[in-house]
Design a protein around this nucleic acid. Structure first.
Lengths: 116, 116
DNA sequence: CCGATATTTTGATATATCTGGAAATATGAA
DNA sequence: TTCATATTTCCAGATATATCAAAATATCGG
């Protein structure tokens, strides 16, 4: 994960419609959703949605496959996890205990960083 | 964490200089870094850096405090962790095992989601 | 093939963001 | 005070992004 890939990914998520699309796809998982299903769910005109799907795809956040006339989009789980790791990479230098999600679950941040 | 707060945060990270600044601050931890130190480290003109620091701060990603003539900026660890949780929230609906960072550390994604 | 459906590409306009010089503000030292 | 340092705010031009109507492309059923 280079800085410029991360900038692109964050940029793709930095827009209301795209973030909504992405979150739907995260929830849908590998099965994904058709462009039409997303357009209907979010009430977005087809060209606008298509533009945003292309942005997300260009950033590598989602994948595309065809199923008959429909194009199915699905989240790229690996990149999602890479991005998460990138955000907290080397957090707090020598004192990783300062970076915990909650005081309670100390192992989370630690293993998250390792996974990058 | 609302969608529009997340859009703002991702937007703040979606720029080369800002992402570089943010990552330096993540590494620096609560101690933070002065505007001057960041400007020198990244070789960015003061007005440009100031603009980007204001963006990051407006998004809630970093905090500001004064130390004599210097302004010290530091990462907001809580928001960092909230963002991380937001990214993977409800991932893969009913089958959270599909969302793991690596096949090995199954507990990571699970507790990360709980922490949101 | 032909018509219907699903989706993308084109293109023009509107809006937002990035950049850095010059000027302004804040703090501390002499 | 007065001067030097640290940093921000103002501004204007340059660049990038968002929107969606209209036209083009892809796939399927008959």
């Amino acid at each position: 994960m280079t800085d410029s890939l991360a900038v692109r990914a964050f940029g793709a998520l930095a827009q209301d419609t795209r973030l909504a699309v992405y979150r739907r796809l995260v929830e849908a998982g590998p099965a994904g959703l058709s462009a039409g299903a997303i357009a209907e769910a979010l009430d977005v005109p087809a060209p606008t949605l298509s533009f945003h799907l292309a942005q997300l795809r260009g950033a590598g956040l989602i994948t595309q496959r065809r199923d008959s006339r429909s194009l199915i989009y699905a989240v790229d789980v690996a990149l999602m996890n890479t991005l998460i790791g990138f955000l907290s990479d080397r957090c707090c230098g020598g004192q990783p205990d300062l970076c915990l999600p909650t005081p309670k679950s100390a192992s989370d941040a630690r293993s998250r960083r390792k996974a990058v």
